[in-house]
Design a protein around this nucleic acid. Structure first.
Length: 431
RNA sequence: GUCCCCAUCGUCUAGCCUGGUCUAGGACAAGAGCUUUUCAAGCUCUCGACCGGGGUUCGAAUCCCCGUGGGGACACCA
């Protein structure tokens, strides 16, 4: 049975690279009907924080990667000491006390040899152990080092496939030696290419958000982020790109993972997010928006028209790159006093429209069927009578009603704004 | 510095293993146009890549070597 693990260290938030590693592990487990194990590598007591553990678990849950088992290394210290003691007894390790350190450390004696590791993604990689120095197993404070705890745990937890970031390649020979010394059999290794920032090099705060929780906060749909991450260094082999998670489980294979580092591209993520927003349930999107709208004071808790909100969400769904954008894009449907973009005003409302706006209000008042088609028909008639081009009036009205130069079709705007609000906003421009 | 990994459009990638069907395909971005109303939606089109050099071969994006470039790792951090 396949058993894989994701082993984050709670010394920081779960970042995009970690999320992708978790995804591939989880996917591999699902595809092979194996187990996905979560191991919190919290042996560094100084830097490990409970808040980070919470944040990592939250992010993983949000992404939808449930785990079958969870372990904390901090609770397994005895096991590591015991295993190190064994190596000591067998003469494979020695102790050393450094000046200023509380106790002796246990150190593994590296013997010169060639170490070959087979990587499922890269094939055979050879290392020369003479370039590797003796490895500390147990530090002077009694805690294990990363490489040692990792090996002891992977063996103890029956991990069959170690799927992790490329940055661990150079740890692999060190770990391979420890497997052998401890008498454990080697798991399969698969090193995933790194995710780079737009300017090359590591994804960093400078080049954009790095934490999964940042993307959550910005309003990306987890399904879209997961789909985007899936496409970084993996491809189904054909041209499919929008692949939901159940299809991904069916298609995923380590063979489809390529060796090249991928650059994180926010534009494509936005496009992907829009693909998912389009197909999302508007009721659910509305639920997600409600707290934001309340915070903005656009609506009041339990005092708003939910049906109306949902209909607005539907209207904007095809266009939103992130659901949170709705707050800025649809504000004029929700607030009493709209903000008018000064440039838009300058461009479209610099002359006097009293006559046209006044006439339009009259016609709307007289309109029998106040629906999109009716509004459009009456507008077209009026424009014709005035001998104007429709766009000569459409843009100024849009700016007066929405404060923006871009947005929905004007007649939809009027319909959803309603007769009264349309009138009020147009009247402001009549002198 | 030492060790390791990688190399197809600006970006994500297909093709590479099993050389010919590749005048290299798709997507994002960008640009142009259409949509008797905007674009931030939709549709159409355009731009745009096999890092360089040597081999091997009738033939190389595909195989081999060297160079160059990029990335990663070299802690009693993980």
């Amino acid at each position: 049975m396949v058993r894989v693990r994701f082993a984050p260290s709670p010394t920081g938030y779960l970042h995009v690279g970690g999320g992708r590693t978790a995804l591939f592990n989880w996917l591999f487990a699902k595809a092979k009907q194996g187990k996905f194990i979560l191991r919190i590598e919290d042996t560094d007591r100084e830097r490990s924080k409970q808040e980070y553990v919470d944040e990592i678990l939250d992010s993983l849950n949000w992404l939808g990667f449930g785990w079958d088992e969870i372990y904390y290394q901090s609770r397994r210290i005895d096991i590591y000491r015991q295993e190190a003691g064994r190596l000591l007894k067998e003469g494979k390790a020695y102790t050393e006390k450094l000046e200023g350190k509380p106790q002796e450390a246990i150190i593994y004696k590296v013997s010169p040899q060639k170490i070959k590791v087979n990587d499922l993604i890269r094939g055979e990689i050879e290392f020369d152990a003479t370039t590797i120095k003796d490895q500390v197993l147990i530090k002077s404070d009694g805690s294990p080092t990363y490489n040692f705890a990792c090996v002891v745990d992977d063996a103890a937890m029956g991990i069959t496939h170690v799927i992790r970031g490329d940055d661990h390649i150079s740890n692999t020979p060190k770990q391979a030696m420890l497997y052998e010394a401890l008498g454990f059999s080697l798991p399969d290794f698969a090193h995933l290419p790194l995710i780079l920032g737009m300017e090359g090099g590591r994804l960093s705060k400078r080049t954009g958000a790095t934490a999964i929780s940042d993307y959550r906060r910005m309003g990306y749909l987890p399904s879209a982020l997961v789909n985007y991450l899936l496409l970084l260094s993996w491809s189904p082999g054909d041209n499919r790109e929008v692949i939901d998670i159940s299809e991904a489980i069916r298609l995923f294979d380590l063979k489809g993972v390529n060796k090249t580092a991928a650059t994180f591209d926010l534009k494509k993520l936005e496009w992907m997010d829009n693909q998912y927003i389009k197909n999302a349930d508007p009721e659910q999107l509305a639920d997600q928006l409600i707290p934001l709208l309340i915070e903005k004071k656009y609506i009041e808790q339990d005092k708003f028209d939910r049906k109306y909100l949902v209909s607005l969400v539907k209207l904007f769904q095809p266009r939103l790159p992130r659901i949170n954008e709705f707050v800025e894009w649809a504000d004029y449907f929700l607030v009493k006093d709209i903000n008018i973009d000064p440039q838009a005003q300058e461009k479209f409302l610099s002359r006097d429209f009293s006559r046209e706006f006044g006439l339009f209000i009259e016609r709307l008042e007289a309109l029998e069927r106040f629906d999109v088609a009716g509004i459009e028909a009456t507008f077209r008639d009026m424009v014709k009578e005035l001998g104007l081009e429709s766009k000569a009036l459409i843009h100024p009205i849009r700016v007066a009603l929405t404060g923006k130069t871009v947005g929905l079709g004007l007649f939809e705007v009027i319909y959803y704004l309603g007769k009264e609000r349309t009138k009020e906003r147009l009247e402001k421009w009549i002198s």
